[in-house]
Write a protein that binds this DNA or RNA. Structure first.
Lengths: 368, 368
DNA sequence: TTCGTTTCCGAAACCGATTTTGTTGACTTA
DNA sequence: TAAGTCAACAAAATCGGTTTCGGAAACGAA
């Protein structure tokens, strides 16, 4: 069993070569005032001894940790967000290429989140933060801005954005979604969204409204509902919207999880998705392809987004102007089979559903 | 904008109180040789100045980082593993309580994984590792054992297990699964698994075989297939097994993703899941409840597992005997609606499917 | 009063790097 | 030949803590 713990230090290398440790350090950091001969002897010794500098010691002196932090919100719904998993994957890949690392922590409340950020900063464990799931009025952005600590956000907020951010053009996507549905023949289009505290949820709702507006369709607030951002919320939202007298024939959902729940509600109550009711989601989850019917959805690459924000943050850490890193990406609609022309009028749909609502659902009693 | 960067050090505190910095350090580390009066003065100053010790400096001297590492495999299939997301969530929660942090990195090959582990050890960025998705012959376990670096695994391997581990009793679960299916009336039971390099995949396959053996059912290797561990693999696996002359009437799948793909294949070809064909998965993914029909699955709490292994690793780091932390948990079967008594004989099922195989599938052409 | 013991804390070494400052000898230049 | 320049490296300071060592004051016992 070879040792790794009390491993070889810069002093060992220096002694082995017969130079001062400062010289070894300069060679390793590409200083130019070292003769080629000495440089090579040192490089050889480094290789022979298998020397790798201690990140801790280096950080102490340089004040940089080569580590980025991400604090992920948990506990709102249940379980982990599939989007975040891929996002983190993207970050980790990007950082790996640059030799940086990612510190992941979780927080179950806003207060806890700020506390955690504060601790990581005070203990100097990270150089900067990646902030996800921005809120409209985000306490993290406020805190970090106030203290001048480097960070990038995935998503914007309503605060003055003098920081780096990357976001998806949610408004355009949802406005486009509405126009797509309208062109299919839907005139009553419903929206199932999430808490408007979340910036993306607000933007998607706004995009939905703007889309209607641009078409000159009269808006009906009864066609909008806000739910927990999971399948159960989607199920409940579909029930709420569809059980009206004049239900929407299409449901635009803020996330795939909502859409999956909504589809479930429809199927459970004898409504054919893709004709009786159209459902569109957002996220491009792989599982959406295997839902019945396969889910039509907007997608963005979470992994790519992760890589993008990482590189932004690194540029910011290198001293570049944060406000020069602000980018908006477009989502693309992946059409599968959950959307189509309406087969029934709103009224007929309402009648059909209500006749079913007193019967048993076809399978189990999910989400009820 | 208050400063956080060049923040308050132990020297500032010492100067403020008028003591040596060693004294401040001793107070903060609960040494007993400090008078109550001095202790209180120092504590007050610490509070007033908002002092928090630098993790870096402390680590340099103590040789401990208060950070655990996890290297997650990526790129095999596509996207992130939903199990891992929850698992990491569980780890992060447990560590948060103890003031430790989690360093997450990714690796796209075995070599890269070992390299990454090596780098993190050499640079002294972590105190120990959490190893997931153990392989039957796992190079990471071999490497870490050889170098005497602390680690815990989630899952066993065939190597001599003189380390801490936590695992699910995959064999028992799958043997039980087979017996459950048999008791429903299934006599030809198929298995869709994954690469046998993965320890859990091997164990589940073995459990399947043992289950059949315990019932005295003759085994047929044509009823087993190994696929990529995602929905697409499940789809392909179902096609392979069901398109035989004497197809299985039940499919036991190694993961929920496989099961979801298998269900999709059945539905696409007019087979009623839960009667014509029974499908059982493993993982307890939330989305399984919203599949049609809702997926019957084995489940374990990934989050709980994450917490469990974290605490084990911390005990190991505290110097306790690793071999005293080895635990096996039982998975539980969550019955939903994808299993039931067979409605057709194997032969009739084969006939029904083949008559459909030349037709169009109902929706799209997923996985084909 | 004197000689141990404690109690409490200051001083300094140390962890392993980076960076600043200083020194040496060779080489120019006037 | 003396003074100045430069290349190449040694020596020491530094980052911010922890830990060891040792000494002064207080206390108790002989």
């Amino acid at each position: 069993m070879s040792r790794l713990r009390g491993s070889v230090t810069i002093d060992d290398v220096a002694r082995h070569v017969g130079v001062a440790k400062g010289t070894v350090s300069r060679v390793l950091n590409n200083y130019t005032d070292i003769s080629e001969a000495t440089r090579e002897r040192i490089l050889k010794a480094v290789k022979d001894l298998g020397y790798q500098p201690s990140a801790t010691a280096r950080n102490l002196k340089r004040g940089r940790q080569d580590t980025l932090g991400i604090v992920i919100p948990v506990g709102h719904g249940n379980g982990a967000d599939p989007f975040l998993a891929e996002f983190i994957d993207g970050i980790a890949r990007a950082l790996d290429e640059l030799g940086l690392d990612l510190l992941v922590t979780t927080a179950h409340s806003r207060e806890h989140m700020i506390e955690t950020i504060q601790r990581l900063i005070a203990r100097r464990k990270v150089d900067g933060f990646i902030i996800t799931r921005t809120e409209v009025n985000d306490p993290r952005i406020a805190f970090l801005s106030e203290h001048g600590f480097p960070f990038v956000t995935h998503g914007r907020s309503c605060l003055p954005a003098n920081h780096a951010w990357f976001d998806i053009d949610n408004e355009t996507a949802f406005a486009d979604g509405v126009r797509h549905l309208y062109s299919l023949g839907h005139e009553r289009i419903g929206f199932i969204g999430g808490s408007l505290d979340l910036n993306f949820a607000l933007q998607r709702r706004d995009g939905y409204r703007h889309g209607l507006q641009s078409l000159g369709v009269t808006q009906d607030r009864a066609l909008e509902t806000l739910q927990d951002l999971n399948e159960k919320g989607g199920y409940a939202g579909a029930r709420e919207l569809l059980s009206q007298v004049y239900p929407p024939t299409a449901l635009l959902c803020a996330t795939d999880a909502l859409a999956i729940g909504a589809i479930r509600f429809c199927r459970n109550h004898g409504l054919k998705v893709g004709s009786d009711v159209t459902v569109i989601g957002y996220d491009g989850l792989p599982v959406g392809e295997y839902i019945d019917p396969p889910l039509t959805t907007f997608s963005q690459s979470a992994q790519e987004a992760g890589g993008r924000v990482s590189r932004m943050l690194i540029d910011v850490l290198d001293g570049k102007d944060p406000t020069s890193f602000q980018a908006l990406a477009q989502a693309t609609l992946t059409r599968r089979a959950s959307d189509g022309a309406p087969s029934k009028t709103s009224e007929a749909l309402g009648v059909a559903l209500r006749s079913r609502l007193n019967q048993q659902p076809s399978y189990g009693n999910n989400g009820e």
